[in-house]
């Protein structure tokens, strides 16, 4: 059976194709305001890479913020269920998941691949990838570098604003006061980690916790979360695609 999962996220659209033998291929594309065409392109990407024709695909399942706009999907499932399935497949011991994406963050408690509890923050940008994107811009540092720079800090600046707009101007005024980019970056990282760690503690994530979503690519956030929670986190080689993988797997059984 060949199945495809599409994760139509607010920032990026991910597609994973699972072949008969269980091997996978994936694609990640910027969503750029158009779920439908991003999903279509990501789908074509994985078909192309796997050299498989559309007709050979048995199931397409969608997930993510735009899951209900993907008309070529047979069914949609929530990101929460999808991440649990996807992470469990790669990491069967998983008991907890922290997902920080473009516009929300979630914590999920998992038992045997099944969700047992979850919490999410999607009411404001604080504690999400958007917060990092905006503040990185104010710092004039590329998103991908932010983590590396933050890790070089010795005394992180303290960022008090939770609101993204105010945090942006706080960054600018800290720079004017002469704080180094490293210390400001580390301050931003800590402020997100603290917020997400509160949610993780609320649902009692203690062991075997995986960190997924685009922000898991930021090594400084991982380190700060580990420090806050006092555990080490499991980060997959490609942490952004577990939702799409989970959706594909959901379709295949």
């Amino acid at each position: 059976m060949i199945s495809v999962g599409i994760d139509a996220g607010s920032a990026t659209t991910k597609a994973v194709l699972v072949k008969d033998d269980g091997s996978t291929v994936h694609s990640i594309r910027a969503t750029a305001f158009d779920f439908v065409s991003a999903a279509e392109k990501a789908y074509e990407d994985v078909l192309g890479i796997a050299e498989i024709d559309r007709k050979e695909v048995d199931h397409v399942y969608s997930t993510g913020y735009g899951r209900n706009s993907i008309k070529f999907a047979d069914r949609s499932i929530s990101e929460i269920t999808a991440h649990a399935k996807g992470v469990h497949h790669i990491y069967p011991d998983v008991e907890g998941i922290i997902d920080i994406g473009g516009q929300d963050s979630k914590v999920i408690s998992v038992n045997n691949g099944k969700v047992t509890d979850f919490l999410m923050n999607d009411k404001c940008a604080a504690g999400t990838g958007k917060f990092l994107e905006y503040t990185a811009r104010a710092l004039e540092v590329p998103m991908e570098e932010l983590g590396k720079i933050a890790l070089d800090s010795r005394s992180p600046a303290s960022i008090s604003s939770m609101c993204t707009v105010f945090a942006e101007s706080e960054v600018i005024s800290l720079r004017a006061k002469g704080y180094s980019k490293e210390d400001i970056a580390a301050g931003l990282v800590e402020s997100i980690a603290r917020r997400v760690a509160v949610m993780a503690r609320q649902i009692g994530l203690k062991r075997n916790v995986a960190f997924v979503g685009g922000v898991a690519k930021n090594a400084a956030i991982k380190a700060a979360l580990e420090k806050e929670l006092g555990i080490s986190l499991y980060v997959l080689p490609e942490p952004q695609i577990t939702g799409a993988l989970g959706a594909a797997l959901h379709g295949s059984n």
Partner: peptide, 16 residues
């Protein structure tokens, strides 16, 4: 304003 957000939580809860 939060109909979508509640919808996602409700979806996940029902699946759970």
């Amino acid at each position: 304003s939060d109909v979508e957000q509640i919808g996602l939580r409700a979806d996940a809860f029902m699946e759970m």
